Simulated scan of single mutants.
Amino acid sequence: MNGIHVPLITPFDETGDVALRVLDREAHDALAAGAAGLVGLGTTGEPGSLSAAERTSILDVLTGIGAPLTIGANTRAELDELRGRPTVTAALTLVPPFLRPGEDGVVAHFEALIQVSPVPIVVYHVPYRTGQQLSAHTLRRLAAIDGIIGVKYATGGVDPDVIDLLADPPPDFAILCGDDAVTSPMLALGAAGAILTSANVAPGAFTDLAAAWRDGDTTRARTLGARLARMSAALFAEPNPAVVKAVLHATGRIPTPAVRLPLLPATAASLRAALSAATLPAHR
Results as ranks from 00 to 15, higher is better:
residue 132 Q to F: 05
residue 91 A to H: 05
residue 30 A to M: 09
residue 81 E to R: 15
residue 113 L to Y: 10
residue 103 E to G: 03
residue 95 V to Q: 01
residue 130 T to H: 06
residue 38 L to Y: 06
residue 40 G to Q: 09
residue 53 A to Y: 06
residue 86 P to M: 11
residue 30 A to T: 06
residue 72 G to P: 04
residue 77 A to G: 08
residue 112 A to Q: 14
residue 56 T to W: 12
residue 33 A to E: 07
residue 29 D to T: 14
residue 123 V to K: 04
residue 71 I to S: 07
residue 133 Q to P: 07
residue 123 V to S: 09
residue 25 R to G: 13
residue 55 R to L: 13
residue 46 E to I: 04
residue 114 I to Q: 13
residue 67 A to V: 09
residue 129 R to E: 13
residue 78 E to G: 06
residue 106 V to T: 01
residue 129 R to I: 14
residue 42 G to E: 05
residue 68 P to T: 09
residue 59 L to A: 09
residue 33 A to G: 06
residue 150 G to S: 00
residue 146 D to A: 13
residue 40 G to K: 10
residue 29 D to G: 10
residue 47 P to H: 00
residue 102 G to W: 01
residue 133 Q to K: 13
residue 94 L to P: 01
residue 57 S to N: 14
residue 28 H to N: 14
residue 63 T to P: 06
residue 141 R to F: 07
residue 44 T to F: 01
residue 143 A to R: 00
residue 87 T to W: 10
residue 109 H to L: 11
residue 140 R to H: 01
residue 38 L to D: 07
residue 60 D to P: 10
residue 125 H to L: 12
residue 42 G to V: 04
residue 119 V to D: 07
residue 116 V to E: 14
residue 37 G to L: 05
residue 80 D to P: 04
residue 21 R to P: 15
residue 73 A to Y: 00
residue 83 R to M: 11
residue 39 V to M: 08
residue 130 T to A: 09
residue 74 N to S: 13
residue 75 T to N: 06
residue 135 S to C: 08
residue 18 V to W: 03
residue 126 V to E: 10
residue 81 E to T: 12
residue 89 T to F: 09
residue 136 A to W: 03
residue 145 I to W: 07
residue 50 L to D: 02
residue 25 R to I: 12
residue 107 V to R: 11
residue 149 I to D: 05
residue 126 V to I: 15
residue 118 P to H: 08
residue 120 P to Q: 15
residue 76 R to T: 15
residue 22 V to N: 10
residue 110 F to I: 13
residue 136 A to P: 00
residue 146 D to C: 07
residue 57 S to M: 13
residue 146 D to G: 10
residue 123 V to R: 06
residue 95 V to T: 02
residue 126 V to L: 13
residue 125 H to W: 08
residue 15 T to K: 14
residue 134 L to P: 01
residue 110 F to L: 14
residue 21 R to H: 15
residue 100 R to V: 08
residue 65 I to G: 07
residue 82 L to C: 04
residue 145 I to M: 10
residue 149 I to Y: 03
residue 90 A to Y: 01
residue 121 I to Y: 10
residue 88 V to D: 01
residue 105 G to P: 01
residue 46 E to M: 02
residue 32 A to E: 14
residue 65 I to P: 04
residue 132 Q to K: 05
residue 84 G to S: 00
residue 44 T to C: 05
residue 130 T to E: 06
residue 146 D to N: 10
residue 143 A to I: 01
residue 150 G to P: 02
residue 82 L to S: 02
residue 55 R to Y: 10
residue 84 G to Y: 03
residue 46 E to S: 00
residue 48 G to I: 13
residue 123 V to L: 07
residue 71 I to T: 11
residue 49 S to K: 06
residue 26 E to R: 12
residue 77 A to D: 12
residue 114 I to K: 12
residue 36 A to H: 10
residue 34 G to H: 00
residue 49 S to R: 05
residue 96 P to Q: 02
residue 125 H to C: 12
residue 61 V to R: 12
residue 121 I to C: 10
residue 31 L to M: 06
